[in-house]
């Protein structure tokens, strides 16, 4: 009986040690990745330190209101902003359903002469779910407020 409980104690010690070392390892990796895991750059970062024109990267932010221009042939242009800086974007291709003014987007492409030439545009979803009829009714009454994203 004494031997059995000693074994059990040893098992608990081993598993606790394993758990602690795992947590430490994950914390170290997370710490090391703190800057490196950015999925996209913000317009402010791009304006501050413009990447070379041959570097492919992602830019993310909101589509600035009143800047979205469609129907110039195949090209669509708009400005992407994070509140601080704003970067003009050109793109030719199919836009996702959720794309629109004041909505989040992530674009892949290159920064050439102050214009972001996107090869791919993704829309971000802002975790807001509302019935269409309700929003239409609110808009009709003029009391609809865009949720902040």
């Amino acid at each position: 009986m004494a031997l059995k409980s000693l074994k059990k104690k040893r098992r608990i010690q081993v598993i606790a040690l394993a758990a602690v070392s795992l947590v430490v390892a994950v914390a170290l990796i997370g710490y090391a990745f703190q800057d490196g895991i950015n999925f996209f750059r913000s317009p402010s970062q791009v304006v501050e330190s413009p990447p070379k024109s041959n570097e492919v990267f992602r830019i993310g932010g909101l589509v600035e209101e009143g800047t979205l221009l469609r129907g110039q042939g195949e090209v669509i242009s708009f400005n992407v902003t994070d509140g601080g800086a704003s970067v003009p974007v050109v793109f030719s291709g199919i836009l996702p359903d959720l794309f629109g003014e004041n909505q989040g987007m992530v674009g892949t492409g290159r920064y050439v002469n102050g214009v972001f030439e996107a090869s791919e545009i993704l829309a971000k979803h802002d975790e807001t779910y509302m019935p269409k009829e309700v929003v239409d009714a609110l808009k009709e009454q003029g009391v609809y407020v865009e949720p902040e994203s």
Binding site: Y129, P131, K132, E133
Partner: peptide, 15 residues
């Protein structure tokens, strides 16, 4: 029996 979402349309149902 749920309405369409205001931006996603009926694609919301996959939720």
């Amino acid at each position: 029996f749920t309405p369409d979402d205001y931006r996603q349309g009926s694609t919301v149902k996959i939720i």
